[in-house]
Design a protein around this nucleic acid. Structure first.
Lengths: 344, 344
DNA sequence: AAGTTTCCGTGAACCGCTTCCACCCGAGGG
DNA sequence: CCCTCGGGTGGAAGCGGTTCACGGAAACTT
């Protein structure tokens, strides 16, 4: 005896109101007396009613769902980003569907086809600026689009000033004695998509170092993938070139974590023998006392969601760019910085 | 002047037939004369018509979309798996939506809420046997469910015999002279979900080794994450314990790749100084000449999709278990195996 | 007190599709 | 030659919502 899902009719009957009224409650329409609204809401509650998004889509042209296209990369960054996006969306009774981009072929299907993904009300593109893969640099969709963790003149975009982050890192590490090394992250080679965030971080880093009178030589840069083990290999590599104390800037917290891990394993003291500065400001950085250039990932996600909501509600203005700034967070992994600038 | 999307009415008008006929063509109903069908199909083609899945869902109770819930882990495995699933589904005019499980909270939302995921016609759960997280060991859904890369008595499941794979690896490496090492993969600790595939592989491996009279001591097992760099660290670690030639079984191709990489970097010759055997049989293994225990990932995905299709079409039988067997693929990374068994 | 507004609410029409019943027509049977 | 029978087809009804024209009652107007 399985009961069918309750519909709007059931709710209307139970609350003793008309269909239209229930619908209005559902859509936050103002013309409903508070007590009526309450009655309807209670009926919904009791019936365990939830509107059918397909029906809403079909009838109203809106599905109350947005698609988030994101790289298929399991990092804390995307977890935080989605959390930020979701926070805002849920509050507005919107749902979100994630579309991991496993391959270029998948992406094309997402966009060219009339799949469910494509029938949502808006699109958030994370990290990849995929626009150039399409004609005229525009995605083949008529729905609003917002980019996050990427910049593009044609669409609203929310991004972090990675160069500034790199500069903060450079200026900070320049104050310490000892050689300075850096680790940058390379994407998987088979990914056709290019990203520039890590390159920007390193550029800013070297810039600041140079300005501080401590130019950075390329052989002190180690490139690896976005893994903890990469950081461990990097530290070993550095230790072959110089002896402690040394300073390491890692382009990503996860990699920095590997550096810390390996330092401890080798009997070195983080913050003294090896000073490590990460980039991201992920929760785990705090747990392990990792100094880092923190980026407000959740806030960026939330902002992107807001921009998209505005567009979905009809805003037609020119593309907006929202720039976020990272901040330096000092913790134990860099020890106590010298009061004065270090002069080599 | 943006044209609206064509609907079934437009197609009907253009083809000079009734609505019902177009719908029948759409659903492969047999009662349509071939020439009529052709005319309708041509009209669709010319109009660029694609049926609206929301409308189909609402009207017929079917949306022609299935959800795939999978771990948010960027590995070749899932790329292949999805490819296998998709191949079968597309053929049957089904669409698929991916739902990456970023966190436990997300999973709950996918299942408990009335989100899009939940409104598709069927569910494929990859890798995680999530059933035990719910009451009575059943997912809170009435749609058919198929597990892949996991086993469960309550649902149809498609899985690889990982223990057998490990045994194959053990039996094979036991034939070579020189010490035998192994690398296993550990999942991210914060993931609440447990997986046993790697443990099973290692169990089988040790079993076979023991049977071959070459028992494996635990200190020859290195644990790392699923990264290439992990393989590199492992090899370094092994080289501190023994000198070449040595034999390495890596629980995953990607890790094996790191071993090869590091071997070359250290001036060792794969297949002679270091014999490496991976697990997965991913395309890149062939490119680099990596011997491996190959699993038919695409076929597993395809099979899972077939099982699901049967269920969606009404099959009510008891849960089915489909077991796949891995096979050993010999390539250059293990060199030429001795004709006779090696006797220590 | 009667006419206006404003506020709430109602339910028919409709969104794009599936389903099912009615209907047409030609072939086979008596 | 009339009657079935059944394949092929058309279109109304309905899926679960949104929207909108419309109406009743209360609140303001003169």
């Amino acid at each position: 005896m399985k009961r069918k899902k309750p519909t709007i009719h059931d709710v209307a009957a139970k609350a003793g109101v008309g269909l239209g009224t229930v619908s209005r409650v559902l859509n936050d329409h103002p013309a409903v007396r508070p007590e009526t609204r309450a009655r309807v809401l209670r009926a919904m509650e009791e019936l365990g009613y939830a509107p059918n998004p397909h029906a809403r889509r079909i009838a109203g042209g809106r599905s109350y769902t947005v698609s988030v296209l994101l790289p298929f990369v399991a990092t804390e960054f995307y977890r935080r980003l989605v959390e930020g996006i979701e926070g805002v969306l849920l509050e507005q009774r919107y749902d979100l569907a994630l579309f991991p981009i496993l391959s270029l072929a998948r992406l094309k299907r997402y966009l060219e086809n009339t799949t469910l993904a494509y029938l949502t009300d808006g699109l958030i593109l994370a990290s990849y600026d995929l626009t150039e893969r399409f004609e005229e640099g525009r995605l083949p969709t008529e729905r609003p689009v917002v980019l996050v963790d990427a910049q593009n003149p044609r669409y609203d975009s929310v991004y972090l000033d990675n160069r500034l982050g790199g500069r903060l890192a450079g200026a900070y590490l320049a104050r310490f004695p000892g050689p300075i090394f850096a680790i940058t992250v390379e994407e998987e080679p088979d990914r056709a998509f290019s990203r520039t965030v890590f390159a920007e971080r390193m550029a800013g880093f070297q810039e600041a170092l140079k300005e501080a009178g401590r130019p950075f030589s390329p052989d002190r840069l180690y490139t690896t993938r976005h893994s903890q083990e990469g950081g461990r290999l990097a530290l070993r590599h550095f230790l072959e070139k110089a002896s402690p104390p040394l300073n390491v800037f890692a382009g990503a917290d996860q990699v920095a974590l590997g550096v810390l891990e390996e330092a401890v394993r080798l009997g070195l003291t983080p913050g003294r023998d090896v000073r490590v500065l990460g980039f991201d400001g992920h929760p785990f950085a705090e747990e392990v006392g990792l100094s880092t250039i923190a980026q407000p990932v959740e806030a960026m996600g939330a902002r992107a969601a807001q921009l998209l909501l505005e567009r979905m509600r009809g805003y037609q203005g020119p593309p907006r760019e929202v720039r976020f700034e990272p901040v330096l967070v000092e913790r134990a992994s860099t020890g106590t910085p010298p009061a004065a600038l270090y002069v080599p």
